[in-house]
Write a protein that binds this DNA or RNA. Structure first.
Lengths: 235, 235
DNA sequence: CGCAAGATTGAAGGACATCAAAGGGCGTGG
DNA sequence: CCACGCCCTTTGATGTCCTTCAATCTTGCG
């Protein structure tokens, strides 16, 4: 994997929602303490139940945050793209990670000790504002997801998952918009809150209608507006 | 409705998760600006989509926070008991209320202008810590709810709703533990993410088994551990 | 070429939503 | 005080959505 230059690291930090707006000196503190981790695809970043020893900022790649309930059924709470923070609530509140984070592509993570972040936040009001902003946004988002999970049918939820994925890691190809990270039907199912049988069948149906092209570990969306109509429709 | 004494108001504020830990002078500012509102049961406190002009702290009663999706299907995100804050994310982030709040019992609400709260938070790091704590807790909670909604069956979700309600507003009666606020089958259904037919049928089944007593707008739990077993069981 | 992981497809059954109809409880007005 | 009407609730019937199991197929890789 290609290493990130110091400049890349600096830019990623000062553009991130957490460190945004820090002045030069403060940012230097952050940069001095950073550790850069490179991970291959499908590597565990942290595990549900672990004590949060570190905060992460994804510089490059793609990460899945998923929770396992009592049954052992995994649910993906969120997919994380470059520039986003991982584990913020656990670190801020000093509770064990409520979910497991796994890279879905070769990734580069910037990471800091939790204690160091807590120290910084404590004396820096700007950081505290940013933290509140991030967590507030997460809360809103989860509330929407909950409402959708409670009221929408599987077809709509799968459509939404696809729309979200193309928005996050969509890559323009001649035929349309491809999800730029290899994801199995199972991966999609965990995002949509169903099983891979349903995803497979739904993909087949949409493929027949010319809405998508479904291949092993890959999907390309041909007709975005059709998907949006399905995701938005009442019944 | 019985008015709250000044002492009650003061105690409610300084015990609340938001104003906790403020010193006397700071708390005075808060108390000077407070407005006390008394609402009958089933009154709308704020409506989804409104701009967040005020922050609320429930002093007495019970409030339902529910979201309406595109279909018009309502989902209850949360039930709020005395001492808890309403609308915190909307006020902190200055976005329109993402849900509607309605009293489920005669209630007393303490309320402040959003602008005043924002000003206070801005100059008081303690308040900012508390705000972050509150929102972080909400995020965690919503993540759990989402996982459960995605993986659990209706029976388990109804059991959980009952357990949650008895924990929040349970009242000891000779037969067992009664939900101390009148709630229709429809209200319970919105919490559990289903319809009132399912709730009615499930209640009937549990009543036959001697686990609960179901009456019009009222439920009494006779066998708490049976309900817990149902809520926790894998299949 | 053969294996393993991913993906498809059919069949069967259960869980759940939906519709229809009718049965109580409670307050209001006569 | 009784009757009426409204809302909450129950209950059955029906059909659909979805899960689950089993078997087979495909794809990529060693």
């Amino acid at each position: 994997m290609s290493n990130l230059s110091d400049l890349d690291v600096q830019q990623t930090c000062c553009r991130s929602s957490l460190f945004r707006g820090l002045d030069g000196v403060e940012l230097d503190d952050v940069l001095k303490a950073v550790e850069v981790r490179e991970e291959q695809s499908r590597a565990v970043v942290f595990r549900q139940g672990d004590t949060p020893s570190r905060l992460f900022l994804l510089a490059k790649g793609f990460v899945k945050i998923s929770q396992i309930n009592g049954d052992g059924t995994p649910v993906t709470l969120r997919m994380i793209g470059p520039g986003e923070i991982l584990a913020c609530v656990a670190v801020f509140k000093q509770i064990s990670y409520p979910a497991t984070a796994m890279t879905m592509a070769d990734s580069v993570l910037l990471t800091w000790p939790a204690s160091m972040i807590l120290g910084l936040i404590d004396k820096n009001p700007r950081l505290k504002d940013n933290a509140l902003e991030i967590v507030g946004h997460r809360t809103q988002d989860l509330a929407h997801q909950l409402t959708r999970m409670a009221t929408e049918r599987v077809e709509q939820r799968i459509a939404r998952a696809l729309l979200c994925l193309t928005a996050q890691v969509g890559r323009k190809v001649p035929e349309g918009l491809e999800v730029g990270v290899p994801l199995s039907r199972q991966d999609i199912a965990e995002i949509a809150g169903t099983d891979f049988y349903n995803v497979s069948r739904q993909f087949q149906k949409w493929a027949d209608q010319g809405i998508i092209i479904a291949r092993r570990l890959h999907v390309t969306v041909l007709d975005l507006s059709a998907l949006e109509a399905i995701a938005g429709k009442s019944h």
